[in-house]
Design a protein around this nucleic acid. Structure first.
Length: 166
DNA sequence: GCCAACGTTGGC
DNA sequence: GCCAACGTTGGC
């Protein structure tokens, strides 16, 4: 588990926003499965496909990189915020996040229709009906195929993953 | 706006 | 622990 797909609504936070700020804490995830992926399975250096959801059209638009180890999502402690969780405490945080760093914007964005039309990518979770999970692992083959079709190459090398922390 | 999918909540 | 009700996601 070393390649990922992360969804973001571009009206809220787009790949262009990530390109501008370079690094973004992935706040507001309130699904346990998605949280567990960030908390337990992501390692700094892991690469993620950046997917625009609720977009016209939806699709994969670029690549991001896990920028550091997981840490408590600060928005769970903000009483006036949308993501406040009264059951969370500093001693016992409930929600964890990682930061994502900008890596690349695809020369050719891959719409959901494009993904479904490709024999390899059509089997990605995001192409299956009912897959709502906003963060999930993708197969290395899916990741590489998406980058190939999207026109992004990491110097012709396979994605590099940094040594595990901890 | 519709609605399928599916996660969460809460009564029992 | 079951499960009906409800809320959210997200494509279309």
């Amino acid at each position: 588990m070393s390649h990922w797909l992360i969804k973001s609504e571009p009206e809220v936070f787009s790949i262009a926003d990530l390109a501008r700020v370079r690094r973004e804490p992935w706040t507001g995830v309130r699904n346990y499965q998605a949280r567990n992926f960030m908390w337990k399975n992501m390692l700094p250096g892991h690469l993620a496909l950046f997917y625009h959801s609720n977009a016209k059209p939806p699709g994969i638009v670029g690549v991001a990189r896990v920028g550091g180890p997981p840490r408590p999502d600060p928005t769970q402690f903000e009483p006036d915020g949308d993501y406040f969780d009264p059951k969370a405490s500093a001693a016992n945080p409930r929600w964890w996040l990682v930061d994502f760093e900008y890596v690349a914007t695809f020369a050719r964005p891959l719409t959901l229709a494009d993904l479904k039309a490709d024999p390899v990518l059509a089997t990605m979770p995001v192409c299956q009906r009912g897959t709502r999970l906003s963060i999930h692992p993708v197969a290395a083959g899916h990741f590489e195929r998406a980058c190939q079709l999207g026109g992004w190459h990491d110097g012709g090398r396979a994605p590099q993953v940094t040594a595990p922390f901890l």
